[in-house]
């Protein structure tokens, strides 16, 4: 009965919304646990305001039950579309089914859900970590070709937290690219837990290894910028010039990495884009207009190197 009432109310509200020509979107943000997340929130809010979309925003403080509550209240309010970055993968089927029964499309952002029934959500929008790894690999191959005319080198890899999806996929994508080049190999690979401190500690160990002395072209590939920034300190403290004697690549494109590139201490950072607002509302508008949207949409992610980092730094500082 309550469900029926809710859906009747929802349809009425939605009808009123459509009548006024205004789209209402409920966004059940998972929290504010990192700078990446804060930038994500700002992007969604800013883009909604720019397009005149009515955004109902809720912050679940990293708790799934809060997110489920938020989605239920969006269903009751009869929003047009629900945006949901699920905090965990499992346990979403009941509430997604409720949304489906109420006829409200759900767009998952930046994380996926674990379900056998893919019809429960309309689309997924987020990063492709494998592509990020490939972007890093492709940039490296181009750079080596440009510098030496041959693709040859020894890669010292700083892996993310063991078992984390970005760590697994960024390794996979990178390895897939360099596998095509027999003289480009990963000679050392250790986990730096995605932190500056561990990145620095692991790099200190790398520098003292025989592999480091043997390496003709020293390449450092880190699964995030923070580990790479720690590693750069270790390289400098060992009396080595990171910009001249190494090729250093990170992932995330945080502002501090742009600064390191601008200072000539790092060479490239691959973007992991939190600014999903524009793409999200493109999809929302398409869904509301009754158009088909692809099931999986990957966020637009760039690769930034020393040609552009210095010029882009002031802009990046305003982002995240």
């Amino acid at each position: 009965m309550r469900k029926l009432l809710a859906s009747v109310l929802g349809i009425a509200l939605a009808a009123a919304g459509t009548f006024a020509g205004e789209i209402t979107v409920g966004f059940a943000q998972l929290g504010a646990e990192s700078m990446w997340r804060t930038a994500n929130t700002d992007s969604v809010k800013g883009e909604a305001a720019r397009r005149g979309i009515n955004l109902v925003f809720s912050d679940a403080q990293q708790k799934q039950e809060n997110q489920i509550k938020a989605v239920r209240s969006f269903i009751a309010q009869g929003v047009d579309v629900i945006g949901l970055p699920p905090v965990v993968e499992s346990g979403w089927e009941p509430v997604l089914r409720e949304a489906q029964e109420a006829g409200i499309p759900v767009i998952l952002t930046d994380r996926r859900v674990d379900t056998s029934d893919e019809s429960l959500y309309t689309a997924f929008l987020g990063s492709n970590f494998i592509t990020e790894g490939e972007n890093a690999g492709n940039w490296l191959v181009r750079e080596l070709m440009g510098r030496y005319g041959v693709v040859k080198g020894e890669v010292f890899e700083l892996v993310g937290t063991v078992g984390a999806a970005p760590a697994i996929d960024r390794k996979k994508g990178f390895e897939a690219v360099i596998a095509k080049h027999p003289n480009l190999n990963i000679v050392k690979s250790q986990s730096g837990d995605f932190t500056r401190a561990k990145g620095k500690e692991v790099m200190e160990a790398f520098i003292k290894s025989p592999e480091w002395d043997k390496a003709a072209t020293k390449i450092i590939y880190g699964h995030n910028d923070d580990m790479v920034l720690g590693a750069i300190q270790a390289i400098e403290e060992a009396g080595i010039n990171p910009g001249k004697e190494c090729i250093i690549i990170g992932v995330d494109a945080i502002a501090d990495a742009f600064e390191a590139i601008a200072q000539g201490k790092m060479h490239c950072t691959v973007e992991c884009n939190p600014l999903l607002g524009p793409q999200l509302f493109d999809m929302v508008e398409a869904v509301v207009a009754g158009k088909e949207v692809p099931k999986t949409v990957y966020s637009i992610e760039g690769t930034y190197d020393y040609y552009c980092a210095e010029a882009l730094l002031p802009w990046r500082r305003t982002l995240y």
Binding site: V159, V162, K188, S189, Q190, S191, E201, V202, A205, F206, K208, S209
Partner: peptide, 14 residues
């Protein structure tokens, strides 16, 4: 910990 780095033991089994 440092020996694991030096011996290049995979972080999965370290």
């Amino acid at each position: 910990t440092t020996t694991m780095y030096a011996k290049d033991v995979s972080p999965v089994v370290a």
